[in-house]
Structure formats: C-alpha cells, structure tokens
C-alpha cells in the first residue's frame, strides 16, 4: 500500500469515526432528554425577576433584551403546544373573597416595590392563590344564567368557544407567562406584538383574561396609535366578560386607529345591530382568524369556524 493510500484511508477512517461518534452522542443525548423531560419545569426556567436583570445583561440595550425574551416566550408557547396536554390542570376548590390584583410594573417609580399590595415573603404562593380565587369567582358568575345582563348572548356557545380554544395552562405557567410579557413590555414599551399576542396566549390558552386585560391596557397606554390592543380587548370583553357594550366601544376605538382592517368596524356594527349569537361568534372568529399569525392558534380557530358554520 502506498503512503498516499494510507493517508487517504486514515483520513476517511478519521472522518467516519467523527461521524459515528457524533451519531452516538446525539443518540445518547436523546436518551438523556427522554429521562429529563418529565422533570423539567419550563415555567421555572422562564422566571425572570424583573426588568432590571435583562436590562443589565443586555448592557442597557433594552429593545434587544425585549426581543430575545419575546422569542424565548414564543418558544415557551411552542413547547407548551407540544407538551401542554400532559400537564394537569389543577383547580383550586376553595374560594372566598374577591381580591383585586395589582400588577403594576413601573419604571417611573424607581426603588418602589413592583407589587404594591403584596408584601415580601410568600410572594408566589400568595399570588397564585390570589389569581385562582379570582378566576373561580368570575367564572361562576358568568356561567350562572340568572346573573347575565345581556340576554341575547348564548353562553353555551361562548363557553364552547372558550373550552375549544383553551389549552391547559397551569396557574404557575400562566403566572410566569404574564410576568414575562410584563417584563418584555417594560423593557420595550413600544413593542406592540407582546401586548396583543401575549394577551391572546393568556386568554386562549389559559383563560387568563384578567391578566390579558392588564397587558392590553398597558399596551393602549404606551401605543395609543395601534388598533390591535383595543380590538383584542373587545374580544375579551365579549367572550370572557359578557360585556357587549364594552366590546362594541373597544371595537369602535380600534376601528378609528390608523391601519385598522375594515372588518373591525363592521364587526362592531353587527354586534350592535344584534345578530344571532352564532353568526356573531363566527363573524368575530373570522376576523380573529384574519389577524392571528400563530399557526396553531389559526388552525384551532379555523376548526371552530367550520364547526359553527356546519350548524
């Protein structure tokens, strides 16, 4: 064998060795991953204390910090889509009184605590408890037909919509998600997508319309020029809070913003005119479909539209 041949053979075997090694490595990685997956708590990984940490880490380039956190949270949602069905949706059975949440994040008040009404110590537990109770309360009100002010809304339909769209965000996950969106919009107050898209994730995946509303309100404050925030607030008012008048006024606000699609005002009008509930729901879902960019969510909405249309 000539030395040249030897050289070629040794090169080939080295490359082959590298490839085999790499394949083995990836294989073992997969095994380890499989072992690890059930124990990982994605919510915990996402925990970002407050905007100061990313602010410092990004060397005061807050916009980029916001972007990266936003992308991270999108991944979180993606992971949720993949693994979400495995999670157990735990409902707190105890409920007593109605608390007001105060999730005011303020950069204007340096040095003051972020959560005005929450005190140090058992922050998380307290918060969780808090939100759970809150929801229990609201949902029960909604689903008792007697307490409805707006008689022409078919609540079986609406709750069907809610349940079909809803994922199973655990309280902890929902809390982290909301917190994360809040941090993102604190770092870049002008970043529109996290406001409405975050509100969408919170409501559609977890039914967390209260936090979603806070997020949208904040978005409307910082970006009064955009139609998305009032539009989604209108959606939440109609579907989750049974506030038809509120929804119409929000849609009116949205339709007057620059760049608002034509269906926004049409939708407002048709709600006001008082269409049949199913038609109205389809109408809204269609417009929701138009503006939704998340593919999974879009597919779900499409499915719903089909379901209603076939009735």
């Amino acid at each position: 064998m000539s030395s040249k041949q030897k050289k070629i053979i040794s090169t080939i075997s080295a490359i082959a060795g590298l490839i085999v090694g790499l394949i083995l490595l990836v294989g073992i990685q997969g095994k380890m991953q499989a072992l690890q997956a059930p124990h990982l708590n994605l919510g915990e990984l996402l925990w970002v204390p407050d905007w100061k940490i990313p602010h410092v880490l990004a060397l005061a380039d807050d916009n980029t910090a916001a972007d990266l956190l936003w992308i991270r949270s999108i991944f979180y949602v993606g992971e949720y889509h993949d693994h979400g069905s495995e999670h157990d949706h735990q409902e707190d059975q105890n409920e007593h009184e109605h608390h007001h949440m105060d999730y005011t994040y303020s950069r204007d008040k340096v040095g003051e605590p972020e959560h005005h009404h929450n005190h140090e110590g058992h922050h998380e537990d307290h918060d969780n408890h808090h939100i759970q109770k809150l929801y229990k309360h609201e949902i029960e009100i909604k689903e008792t037909p007697d307490s409805i002010d707006f008689k022409n809304i078919d609540f079986r339909n609406l709750s069907l919509i809610r349940n079909t769209l809803a994922g199973h965000l655990t309280d902890n996950e929902a809390k982290h998600m909301y917190h994360l969106f809040n941090v993102i919009t604190e770092l870049d107050t002008m970043f529109v997508t996290p406001y409405y898209q975050g509100a969408m994730y919170l409501t559609l995946m977890g039914g967390r319309y209260k936090e979603a509303n806070l997020l949208l309100d904040k978005g409307m404050k910082h970006r009064p020029d955009r139609w998305e925030m009032p539009f989604y607030r209108g959606f939440i008012r109609l579907f989750y809070m049974n506030d038809k008048n509120g929804a119409v006024s929000d849609l009116r606000i949205a339709s007057m913003k620059k760049g608002a699609p034509g269906f926004v005002s049409q939708l407002a009008t048709s709600i006001q005119v008082g269409m049949g509930q199913v038609e109205m729901a389809i109408e809204f879902l269609k417009s929701l479909y138009e503006v939704t960019e998340d593919q999974e969510m879009k597919a779900k909405i499409k499915k719903l539209i089909k379901m209603y249309s076939s009735k």
């Binding site: 380039d61 990266l68 936003w70 997508t193 898209q197």
Partner: peptide, 24 residues
C-alpha cells in the same frame, strides 16, 4: 432567523438585534 419566530414585527427585531450587534 430569530425574527421569523416572532409572531409580529419581525423587522423591528432584525433592526434591534442588528444595531446592537454592530455596536457590540
């Protein structure tokens, strides 16, 4: 690539990261 994952405003993300990277 990252901006493609963002559900909205990809051009904002490209500009943000691009400007940050050039300065850094």
């Amino acid at each position: 690539v990252i901006s493609a994952w963002s559900v909205g405003e990809p051009e904002k993300i490209i500009a943000d990261i691009g400007l940050t990277i050039t300065v850094l």
